[in-house]
Amino acid sequence: MPRPATDKRERLTAAAATLAYTRGLERTTLGDVASEAGVATGSVYYYFKSKDDLGLAIVDQLRERYAALVEEWNAAPDPRARLAAYVDMHLRDAGTITSYGCPIGSLCSEARKVSEDLGDSAAEIFTMTIAWATEQFEALGFPSDASRARALHLVTGIQGAAVLTNALSDPEPLEREAAHLKRWIATTSA
């Protein structure tokens, strides 16, 4: 049964995201995206005039994913559990991170190679994550500046561990840093 034409943009975006994640956005051509999505190359150009346009669609898709994850984390009963859920998400993705790196970190690095504007757009996902973590630390009673510092520490720690995990092709750095961060979250107090 043929796919409806209305899902072509979503299929192209999903294919582009997969290729950007597995081989890098800079090395992915619009023809590669068409092939991965199973559509004619001209279809890519109909929906995306440039690699920047395609990159923005990937960023939007990832931003939506992270907005949904924030909602999921916010369902946890308290700030400590919400912060631990953020760390746990990375542990659940350890296999993929080992092979390809963190989706956000990888996308930000790749996007910046394509253009500053695309890099800035991708970085908004980190900005959103840091702001969310800052709110959690504020809910624990930390002042605003201290909450932001703790949020940066959390995100930097998990991202650094993700980079090392990918570089070494070994989940141990991520597992150890996640365990450390979860202990830190459990015992930190204002």
Rank of each mutant, 00 (worst) to 15 (best):
A67N: 09
A190F: 15
A57D: 02
R27S: 12
E26P: 02
A178T: 04
A16I: 04
N166H: 12
H180Q: 09
R80W: 04
T41F: 11
Y46F: 13
K51A: 01
Y46G: 02
A34K: 11
D145L: 12
S35V: 12
L181G: 01
L154E: 02
D145K: 11
G119I: 07
F126D: 06
A40T: 10
H153R: 13
G24D: 05
D78R: 12
A40P: 05
D52L: 05
R65L: 06
Q61R: 13
K51L: 03
E72C: 08
D170I: 12
G101W: 02
A57V: 04
M89W: 11
T18A: 15
L69P: 03
R176Q: 15
Y86W: 11
T127C: 08
V39Q: 08
R23F: 03
G160D: 04
I104C: 04
R63W: 07
L54F: 06
Y66F: 14
A149G: 09
L107G: 01
S99N: 11
V155F: 01
R80D: 06
F142M: 07
T98W: 05
C108W: 02
K49L: 11
A40M: 10
S144V: 10
M1E: 09
A133R: 00
K8G: 07
N74M: 14
E116K: 13
R92G: 07
A162V: 03
A186Q: 09
A85C: 08
E175R: 15
K8P: 06
V87N: 01
S35W: 11
D52K: 04
T156A: 14
G42N: 05
A133M: 02
T134Q: 11
L83W: 02
R63V: 04
A94S: 15
E116T: 08
L152K: 09
R27D: 13
S109M: 10
T96S: 15
P103A: 09
D145I: 10
T13D: 07
L107Q: 03
K8S: 15
F126Y: 15
D117A: 14
V44D: 00
N166D: 03
G31S: 14
A34E: 08
T127Y: 08
K8Q: 15
M89T: 10
F142N: 00
P171H: 05
Y46T: 14
T28V: 11
L91H: 08
S189E: 15
E10Y: 13
A133F: 01
Y66H: 07
A81Q: 11
I185S: 00
M1R: 14
L62P: 03
A149Y: 03
V155L: 04
D60C: 03
L12N: 02
P2W: 11
R92L: 10
R11W: 10
I130S: 05
D93M: 13
E124V: 10
T165M: 04
H180C: 09
I185L: 01
E177Q: 15
T98H: 07
A133N: 01
P171S: 07
P2D: 07
A76V: 06
Y86Q: 08
T129E: 06
Y21C: 02
L152P: 00
L140F: 08
A94G: 06
A37N: 01
D170Y: 08
Y45Q: 05
Q61V: 03
A149H: 05
V155N: 04
L83V: 04
A85E: 10
